[in-house]
Design a protein around this nucleic acid. Structure first.
Length: 377
DNA sequence: TAACCGTGGAA
DNA sequence: TTTCCAAGGTT
């Protein structure tokens, strides 16, 4: 029976590789962006930038990176910092386990590597949050070691160069490209070559409308020669986020607000937010929340349905009903997962975006109500 | 392998 | 409005 055969990749010849390296590095030397983490080769700085850049745009990362390096200038500063301060510095960046893993790894580096980011693949790969791409990026950029660093950019660029039609969401495809990439990295400038490859993907060989006419390696590109650059890379479509009805409460008592800490695992793990729970379809959201609070010993004098906010995560779409309530008394002892916090102390907490949206709605409505009642002006 | 884990920008 | 996605890692 005829099995579907993978298109074999011809190993590129020495002359082709030399030409590719010269064109790519020459272009990179001319147009590379002046990014904050490119000012020196401090492994810690490269590391922090690479973690922040995971699934995150350069323009988004820059202000976070600058603030983070100001607050935690060395790996030891990060290792010795309060976790709350680290999370606060990450507020709004998303994928918060990156921040916790980064600090845990910083502690590991201080305790077991003398405060020096390890320079061998096996050791650095054992650190939390450092996978195959990030290990390669740090080792090649900071230590100039000849190792592949294959990210989404590199997979896109290389799948076009070689007309590789394998699904790039598969691990096996990434490994294949790492092998191929290794053969292309020059002896003298591994870090620059890896960065040049990513820079090309970010600025020229873009997912949509690649600027092939101004590409420094257009002669070396097989997809462009065939006019099929738009069909690559092949990538399996992600499922759209599933809608999840939620209830969130803005519960106050004597100028304080009730906060709840999320479970240690799962979405927004360990983050503080407003008390919230999933709502099964047609249930009455107000009753659902008041029942939940009653079971904690928190009884409401009044409650109002304020409205809806929506927040989309990578795989879930929270449809949030926001409820405002006034608690009768806060005398009962709360579990560690709950806390009453003065309104002017909320800013000390690192809230995920969805809770900011809910709080904004609650405060809008509250201000309007206060204005109507003549407490303003 | 495939699902999970945030957010915001662009088309 | 919807879709895709941006320097991925963990389970």
């Amino acid at each position: 029976m005829a099995r579907k055969k993978h298109q074999p990749i011809q190993p590129p010849g020495k002359e082709w590789i030399r030409s590719l390296q010269n064109h790519l590095l020459g272009w990179y030397d001319e147009v590379k962006r002046d990014l904050p983490w490119r000012k020196d080769q401090d492994p810690y700085k490269i590391w922090v930038s690479e973690i922040m850049l995971q699934q995150t745009r350069v323009d988004t990362v820059i202000p976070y990176y600058l603030r983070f390096m100001e607050k935690f200038p060395t790996v030891r500063d990060l290792a010795e910092a309060d976790e709350d301060d680290v999370i606060k510095a990450w507020e709004g960046l998303g994928y918060y386990s990156r921040a916790r893993n980064l600090q845990a790894a910083a502690k590991e580096v201080c305790e077991r590597h003398g405060g020096v980011v390890p320079r061998d693949p096996a050791s650095i790969s054992r650190l939390k949050g450092i996978g195959p791409y990030t290990a390669g990026a740090i080792l090649s950029i900071a230590y100039n070691l000849r190792v592949p660093a294959v990210d989404g950019n590199v997979m896109r660029v290389m799948s076009r160069w070689f007309v590789l039609k394998e699904d790039v969401t598969k691990v096996s495809t990434r490994r294949l490209l790492e092998e191929l990439d290794l053969a292309l990295i020059p002896e003298d400038r591994p870090g620059d070559f890896n960065q040049a490859l990513m820079e090309l993907g970010a600025l020229v060989c873009t997912p949509i409308h690649p600027a092939c006419d101004s590409c420094p390696v257009r002669q070396e590109c097989k997809a462009r020669a065939l006019g099929i650059q738009h069909e690559l890379p092949v990538k399996k479509k992600a499922k759209p986020p599933a809608p999840v009805p939620m209830v969130v409460g803005w519960i106050r008592n004597h100028g304080r607000v009730l906060l709840e800490r999320r479970p240690e695992e799962g979405l927004l793990a360990g983050m503080w937010g407003l008390p919230s729970l999933e709502r099964e379809g047609a249930e009455n959201p107000v009753g659902l929340l008041t029942n939940r609070l009653s079971s904690l010993g928190i009884h409401l004098a009044s409650e109002t349905l304020l409205g809806e906010v929506e927040h989309v995560f990578s795989h879930r779409r929270w449809q949030v009903t926001v409820i405002e309530g006034e608690a009768i008394s806060t005398e009962s002892s709360l579990s560690d997962a709950f806390r009453w916090v003065k309104e002017d102390e909320l800013e000390a907490y690192a809230f995920p975006k969805v809770y900011h949206k809910a709080m904004r709605l609650a405060q809008q409505k509250t201000d309007k109500e206060a204005a109507v009642q003549g407490r303003l002006f």
